[in-house]
């Protein structure tokens, strides 16, 4: 526990945390407003396929509007958590502090474990912040949309819980990725690009594969971490996609694999 405390102390004693905070705040505000605008203006248009129309209609059901609004800020919040988690590891090599860290705690798995712990706590704090603000702001927005607050619905609370799980899993993934990609610049660039562009690029690739190779390939899309995460947190089951828990399992799988691999590599590597 004192090691987790030390890791959090490291984050608090550089300017990194408030820089990330300053980046996150406007992005979070923008996503709340964007969600609001989307539901205020959307209706089902004529020339869509049956499946698309079904999906859009499903998304417009009051409960789905509510779950997506109550988890606002997830997209950018997770991005920030992912980058912070990776930097917790890469900064040790960037600033050559790994020597000091491993001299203080020669049991390297304990250090990595503490970094996982610190990243998870940071993720939980950011999740808590966005969730509390959402719980205050979203009832007002729903009122504006002429929808009930739906705070009594289990589905809403399940979405908020899954949102927390997503934050935590991405934090673990970030630490693991930081160990695997030791260069600070490479790690932040690769993770940010994969996270932001990843989902779009992947869905294009899979759309092409599905069209030209075979229908079943589309089901493999869930193996991509960003797609898995989206599936896991998509509130209620939407028609045409695998069940939610599949997304959760895939994401947990990635977190466990990067975590274990990262720890194993750190234990073996020479620090010089």
């Amino acid at each position: 526990m004192s090691l987790v405390n030390a890791e959090l102390f490291k984050v608090r004693t550089t300017s990194l945390w408030w820089i990330m905070g300053i980046i996150l705040l406007p992005l979070y505000a923008a996503s709340v407003l964007a969600n609001w605008a989307q539901y205020a203006n959307s209706e089902v248009t004529g020339d869509t396929t049956d499946l698309q129309a079904q999906q859009i209609q499903a998304a417009l059901q009051p409960i789905n509007v509510a779950t997506s609004l109550y988890t606002s800020g997830q997209y950018f919040g997770i991005l920030i958590v992912l980058l912070l988690s990776a930097i917790i590891v890469t900064s040790e090599f960037f600033h050559l502090t790994a020597t000091t860290t491993f001299l203080t705690t020669p049991h390297r798995e304990a250090v990595i474990l503490a970094k996982f712990g610190a990243a998870v706590i940071i993720a939980a704090v950011i999740w808590l912040f966005t969730t509390v603000v959402n719980l205050i702001v979203v009832p007002l927005i729903l009122g504006n949309l002429d929808l009930p607050t739906q705070l009594g619905e289990p589905a809403v609370w399940r979405a908020i819980g899954l949102n927390a799980l997503a934050f935590v899993l991405w934090a673990i993934l970030g630490v693991g990725a930081g160990v695997l990609i030791r260069s600070q610049i490479a790690a932040t660039l690769i993770l940010a690009i994969t996270y932001v562009a990843g989902t779009a690029v992947v869905s294009i690739i899979f759309a092409l594969l599905t069209n030209f190779v075979a229908e079943w390939i589309n089901n493999l899309q869930v193996l991509v971490p960003t797609s898995a995460s989206q599936l896991m947190i998509s509130g209620t089951d939407l028609p045409g996609s695998p069940p939610q828990w599949v997304g959760a399992i895939v994401l947990i799988g990635y977190a466990v694999v990067t975590g274990l691999l990262g720890t194993w590599i750190t234990k073996r590597r020479d620090i010089s």
Binding site: S2, L3, N5, A6, F9, K10, T13, T14, S15, L16, S91, H95, L96, T97, T99, T100, T101, L103, T104, T105
Partner: peptide
């Protein structure tokens, strides 16, 4: 042990560098 001169985070103060070790070492 003192192994290399440049082994602290550039953005951290000297006192916090030492406190960080204190925290980890109890």
């Amino acid at each position: 042990a003192v192994l290399e001169a440049s082994s602290a985070n550039r953005g951290r103060t000297g006192r916090n560098h030492l406190r960080m070790i204190c925290r980890a070492a109890g």
